[in-house]
Design a protein around this nucleic acid. Structure first.
Length: 471
RNA sequence: GCUCCUGUCGUCUAGCCUGGUCUAGGACGCGCGGUUCUCAUCCGCGUAACGGGGGUUCGAAUCCCCCCGGGAGCACCA
């Protein structure tokens, strides 16, 4: 079977992660089936759609590693086509101009609600000869509308509840449900994979497809991404735009992996323990199947994303990680007007933090002491029950050891060897004050790594600063 | 209100179709322990769920019915 799926984001806001996830599923499915995946932009809402939002969609999808086939098409470029089909329907008497005003519709709606009926408009002027007004569909269907959803199975709707729904404001201003139907036909889309919030649009679209004599695509409705309170993910739950995740230090592969796994999973591999959670894009494409997607909505669990992002960070080579993370550091350094010593090796610093990073954006706060003198409370220098004199002498010892090391001996291995030889039973007595003096932090990488990167002079200077603090 | 969708650990899920091998598996999180000066990594152990009630059956997370819960959609937005 030939497969062609499409993604049709609307440029009326920044690219939402939910939209991004739907795109991932479309992408995975068509690639899995060896089909085509195309991008169409829904930009007929002139008031709300903006160029910068369209740009955001394109940049975001590229960043995620989603590539589409062919040129991007836009709804606004097909106005002539829509007009052609609207005229056809009008000529065939399948649609009509509705003469009712907004107030009249509102009154009808209220009375229906009052009668505990589903609000809809059933027009009493279907055969009016008017040539202006809202164009509505003459809904004469009485049989149930049935269609098969690839994820949910057989679905059925009562067409009476739809009323004479609208399909265009005028000949050249089609409304969503009409525009998608025409576009899917014109673009020869075979599979419509979209969010579950579109389920109730489907019967309208089917009615239009039938009226126009179009083939019916295969539908698949994905569960929604939910916030922590189980309602549709929105701003009040935290970051919803893809850009925020991008800027927040998430890796595209991690986000892709996480969102693909959210609401979809491979079957039990039968392994007794430790089933795989980390999948490359290729593996996801190879194993993807629509029938395995979950039916219920899934909560967007940021802590699992953070873990997964950390996993991807840990698996990067030092060089690659350094390339990706340096901009975060550079921005921070310039914002804080820090002069960086030219001999500092940024790649080493970044690699040192690799096992601790969940997000690239955490880098500056974790490594600031390499770039400026650490600030800390004297009390932090204290290890267990040591008093100030003991701490001071411990730091003096560390300083002496360091002074005895020549520049070539400033490797991590060598420093570790020398310091551990001199350390007592409780290594903490020597190493804790030393590490705090160097980093100014309660938690940090080990002192040997820090001294190696900082160099002999800077390290000694920090020990002296600490000793002075104790007086 | 109406319509539709949906319900396994706190979260993401495996298992459900084709009842027994499920004393319900994995992952994240959390807790404890090991490595360790600290944190992280890594390793080991642990924690915790079939929404409820009826059936059918020798046997139900799996099949049937009812109830309850959660969500979404009901535009001259997409």
């Amino acid at each position: 079977m030939r497969v062609k799926t499409r993604m049709a984001p609307s440029p009326t806001g920044f690219l939402h992660v939910g939209t991004a996830r739907t795109t991932i599923f479309n992408f995975l499915y068509s690639r899995h089936m060896g089909g085509e995946f195309v991008l169409r932009i829904e930009d007929t809402d002139i008031e709300r759609s903006e160029k910068r939002f369209e740009e955001d969609i394109i940049v975001g999808l590229k960043w995620l590693g989603i590539e589409w086939d062919g040129e991007i098409t836009r709804q606004s470029e097909r106005i002539d086509t829509y007009e052609k089909y609207i005229r056809k329907l009008l000529d065939e008497g399948k649609t009509f101009y509705c003469p009712h005003s907004g107030e009249e519709l509102e009154r009808e709606r209220k009375s229906q609600l009052w009668d505990k009926e589903s609000p809809r408009h059933v027009c009493d002027a279907r055969d009016s000869k008017l040539k202006s007004g809202l164009i509505r569909f003459k809904n004469n269907t009485s049989e149930k509308i049935k269609f098969s959803d690839e994820i949910r199975g057989e679905l059925s709707f009562d067409p009476q509840l739809l009323g004479d729904f609208s399909l265009a404001k005028d000949l050249r201003t089609p409304l969503y449900n009409f525009a998608v139907v025409v576009d899917d036909q014109e673009m020869e889309i075979t599979h419509v994979i979209r969010g579950e919030d579109h389920i109730s649009n489907t019967p309208k679209q089917i009615l239009l497809e039938d009226a126009l004599g179009f083939a019916r695509p295969i539908f698949a409705h994905l569960p929604l991404i939910l916030g922590s309170d189980k309602s549709k993910l929105s701003k009040r739950h935290g970051a919803t735009s893809l850009t925020e995740y991008k800027n927040g230090g998430y890796l595209p592969e991690a986000l892709f992996n996480f969102m693909a796994i959210l609401g979809w999973h491979l079957p039990d591999t039968g392994k007794a323990e430790g089933e795989q959670e980390i999948f490359s894009k290729e593996e996801l494409i190879k194993n993807f199947s629509l029938e395995r997607v979950q039916k219920a909505g899934a909560i967007f669990d940021i802590t699992k994303l953070d873990w997964m992002n950390g996993e991807y960070i840990r698996h990067k080579s030092s060089k690659e990680l350094s390339r990706l993370a340096t901009p975060y550091l550079a921005t921070w350094l310039s914002d804080n007007q820090v002069d960086v010593r030219h001999d500092l090796d940024l790649e080493k610093i970044i690699t040192l933090e690799q096992p601790r990073l969940k997000k690239l954006s955490e880098l500056p706060e974790k490594t600031d002491y390499f770039f400026k003198e650490p600030e800390y409370d004297v009390a932090l220098l204290k290890w267990k029950q040591m008093n100030n004199n003991q701490i001071k002498s411990s730091l003096e010892t560390a300083k002496e050891i360091l002074q005895s090391v020549d520049e070539n001996g400033m490797t991590k291995e060598n420093l570790e060897k020398i310091f551990l030889e001199k350390a007592g039973k409780d290594r903490g007595e020597l190493l804790w004050p030393l590490r705090v003096a160097l980093s100014g932090k309660k938690a940090s990488p080990g002192p040997f790594d820090i001294m190696h990167i900082l160099g002999k002079n800077a390290s000694i200077s920090r020990l002296e600063t600490a000793i002075d603090k104790l007086v």
